Simulated assay, not measured.
Amino acid sequence: MKKQREIVADLTDQELVLNVYLTQVIMLVLALIIGYFVFDRWFDFGLLFKTNLKWMILVGGGVALVVVFTDLILERLLPKEWLDDGGINERVFRNLSIPQLFLLCAVVAFAEELLFRAVIQTAFGLVIASVIFALVHIRYLDKPILFFNVCLVSFLLGTLFYWTGMIMITIFAHFLIDFLLGIILRNRYKKNIEKEGGVRT
């Protein structure tokens, strides 16, 4: 984990964002490869994308808002160092425009939910999919609160998929969580820069 942080520290913000995109491409490829063996027909895979717009917005959106508000409450209640991810999330989001942030969050939500929920959870169940999802976020392993939070969100999204059978609901919830938190981090960074009266990259 220390080595990972050192590698990340050597990357520019743009290189960091590019690495996020490359990681999502790998996840999409894995989802297609594993999905080929999990589903008898691609038609069965496609059935997971059936959706109910009202449910997607109310249920998926509701879950996302609960997660975001919980994160904000934890920030106020817990010591800052307990929630410090090394500034990686801020560096990913801070220099993105809103459309760029929207696109990045949409790609991440689609790729990760497709792999971990639609494919891995369908094949191996909620617990295994949620644990693997949490372990992929390796930089949180030495941060108990952050790791527990990722585990909880993973189980929450997995349970949402289990109950509804609709992958679009979990994709929307995942997207909204990342997008709202991304905007918050971006705005905080911009305000801090304005207060300091300078420009940092």
Rank of each mutant, 00 (worst) to 15 (best):
F161H: 11
A9N: 14
V63P: 02
T122C: 03
I193V: 14
M27T: 03
Y189T: 05
G125T: 09
V199G: 04
K80P: 02
V20H: 12
A129Q: 01
G158K: 05
F124L: 14
L160K: 07
D142A: 11
I193R: 15
R76Y: 05
L58W: 04
K195Y: 06
I88A: 12
L115T: 08
A173M: 06
R139G: 02
C105R: 02
L83I: 07
N19P: 00
D85S: 11
V108T: 09
N52W: 14
I145P: 04
I193P: 09
V67Q: 08
D40C: 00
L160A: 12
M1P: 14
P99T: 07
L157A: 05
G198Q: 14
P99H: 06
T159E: 14
A123Q: 12
L28V: 09
M56G: 01
N192V: 07
A9V: 08
R76V: 02
A31Q: 11
D44H: 11
V63M: 10
R94S: 07
E196P: 03
E113W: 07
T12F: 13
L78W: 09
D44E: 13
V131H: 08
Y21V: 15
I57Y: 02
K143G: 04
G182D: 02
V136T: 11
V107H: 12
G62S: 03
G182W: 03
T201Y: 15
F124D: 03
L58D: 00
I34D: 00
D10G: 15
I171P: 08
G86K: 09
I128P: 02
